[in-house]
Nucleic acid binder design. Structure first.
Lengths: 133, 133
DNA sequence: CTTGACCTTCCAGTTAGTGGAAGCCCTATC
DNA sequence: GATAGGGCTTCCACTAACTGGAAGGTCAAG
């Protein structure tokens, strides 16, 4: 299979596939004309990577997960550790965003959004918080 | 004030302040020895930027917010538009992360995390989803 | 034999900074 | 006067994970 075919089949764009080769995540063969040639195993890996990335795993995590996937001597504990760590990162991000959201939605709600210049959003961004300390 | 003083006072690191000058967000004066000299207005802007960034506004948004802040002829509608747009982005991110979180926490829950190699996390990442389509 | 769709490599740009090196400036101390 | 320190300067490189685009080779169809 050529790169276009695996891109289609895996859902990973050609540019990204080349990038994954660059950083050593996959190692497709080359045919005589210089084109990359992908085996079924390469396609599998790309689909695996696509799913792992869709779950938000970093490339470093993906590399480790892929290595574990191909290691018969792995333990599920190793995999679970990575996943648990990532889950915690996600929770942190959600918490941070939720906090921003809370503040921001209050500000938005308090702003008239009309033709006048008075705006509590700007006031809040501008004012020093001495009062709240 | 020198850069270290405003960094302290605004909470924005010196490196970041220099970067903000590079991209034209602030324009501190220079004293004879080449040091940046910050007026109160510069300090104000930096604090403003720090708060806007803490709410997750992009640099582009910050630039617009700052311009509106200094524009007496602004309307609060303009400000509210930016804030509302950003709020929607935050909601989108939270939604995406929540979806990842849901899938991932299911997988983590289903994984024994022991010394054996069998792992539903890896299985899920590896399997094609023909069945679910 | 040419057209168009592929494929190749390489360079640059994206976000918002951060780290570090080389070197100037200023104050204090010996 | 020399020197040590801390702060300041610029500039370059690096981060994550791609993405866009240019210049050019390959291949099948008409």
């Amino acid at each position: 299979m050529n790169i276009g075919d695996v891109a289609e089949a895996s859902g990973v764009p050609p540019k990204t596939i080349r990038y994954y080769e660059d950083i050593g995540l996959i190692r497709p063969l080359r045919s005589a004309n210089g084109y990359r040639t992908f085996r079924d195993s390469d396609l599998h890996k790309l689909a695996f990577l696509g799913r792992a990335r869709a779950l938000g795993f970093s490339i470093a995590d993906c590399r480790n997960l892929l290595a574990l996937y191909e290691d018969d001597a792995r333990t599920s504990a190793e995999v679970k550790d990575i996943a648990t760590g990532h889950l915690q990162e996600i929770d942190k991000k959600i918490a941070d965003l939720s906090e921003m959201r809370a503040t921001l939605s209050e500000l938005v709600a308090s702003c008239a959004g009309d033709h006048r210049p008075d705006c509590p959003i700007l006031t809040s961004l501008a004012e020093s918080n001495e009062a709240t300390v």
